[in-house]
Computed example of a mutant assay.
Amino acid sequence: MRAKSNVIVPAGVTLGALGVLGFSFSLPATRLAVAGLDPWFVAFGRALVAGVLAIAYLALSRAPLPTVTQLRRLVIVAAGIVVGFPLFTSLALTTQTSAHGAVVIAVLPMCTAVWAVVRAAERPPVAFWLASGAGLLAVLAFVATGGGLSGSLSLADAYLLIAVLLCGLGYAEGGALSRELGGARTICWALVVSLPATIPISLYTADFSRATPVVWLSFAYVALISMFLGFFAWYAGLAAGGVAKIGQIQLAQPVLTLMWSAVVLGEPVGWPALATAAVVVVCVVLTQRSRVPATTAVADPQPVR
């Protein structure tokens, strides 16, 4: 029985991996969506669709209203993952490919870990930082040698860096808050809090004259998966396993995104992708083995509901 229990994948890792799998297609889908829709509509429209679904979920689950303190924290979550990341990635991908976007997005796990230290009071050990740093360097080396880096900071690069900064904050704050509200309710309340902004901006930027079936399918993906269902698994995983620790699973996302870009968008991905994927998997395993002290992971933790 003891040997069997040692190979069971923790729930936080499983949920986090499902979230990353869903998010890994976000950049290619966004790239396809902004080809026929205004990038502002892609960013705010997907949050509006997800917000309507969130209202339905909260009503059916009879979720209690968040406290005033939780509402303030939900504003931070919304600023990061409902508004900030979708908007700035949409703006960047009007001129850049999803493969290029994967270069900058590769720093998101490290950014999440840093925000976890600031916002969630987590204190990962040195081994954790070494493993996550090695995985980050491996991913950056892969995309750089594959032609992902342009060699200069363009406006699109600046957008992507801002997106990563805000998204890391939203992940860290949302992961900590999920210990109180639960993963599903955290993203749902964040979407509801954002509705006063997402509704008018979506209506103002709505222009469907160039939208094709592929564009609409891509928009549906970023609305239903990237902005809604993916966060059910992701925030639940962060709450169960710790923000900094589970956040490192996202080191695999740039490689997965490049794979999707090759399959869907026809961008070439050679054998180095396989080697990099293997290195990233090893680094992710090492981060999971490095323990975040339970006494400092999150102040006043509560069980996920």
Rank of each mutant, 00 (worst) to 15 (best):
G148D: 07
S178W: 06
T67Y: 09
V7E: 07
S90M: 09
G16N: 05
V34S: 13
F41L: 09
F142R: 02
L58C: 02
S178P: 11
T257W: 13
R2M: 11
L93Y: 09
P268W: 14
T112D: 09
V13F: 10
L108G: 05
A236Q: 14
W216F: 07
P200T: 09
I105T: 12
A134M: 05
Q70F: 06
S154E: 13
P301V: 03
A299P: 02
K4N: 15
E122G: 03
L166R: 04
G247R: 13
G168D: 04
Y235A: 05
V9R: 06
F231Y: 15
S150N: 15
V298I: 14
W129D: 02
V292P: 04
A239L: 06
G36I: 05
A299D: 13
T30E: 05
T295Y: 02
F219Y: 03
Y204N: 08
I249E: 02
A190E: 00
I187P: 00
W40P: 00
L71C: 10
L74H: 07
P86W: 11
G16T: 01
I105N: 15
G45P: 00
R289Q: 15
V126Q: 12
V114A: 12
V243T: 14
S24H: 09
W260K: 02
T198M: 06
F142K: 01
P268K: 04
T112K: 11
Q253P: 00
T295L: 03
F219G: 01
G22W: 06
L181W: 04
P28H: 10
W40K: 07
A63R: 10
T145I: 13
A275V: 10
A240W: 04
V263P: 12
V68G: 00
S194F: 06
V292G: 10
L177I: 02
T276I: 00
T257N: 11
G247I: 07
L265C: 09
G80E: 03
Q70L: 01
F228C: 00
P254T: 11
L32Y: 05
R46T: 10
A275L: 13
S218T: 11
A244F: 10
I162P: 04
A113K: 01
L217G: 15
W260R: 00
G45S: 07
W40M: 12
L130E: 08
V139F: 01
V269M: 14
P303S: 14
A106Y: 10
W271Y: 11
F208I: 01
G247T: 14
V13Q: 10
G36S: 05
F44M: 08
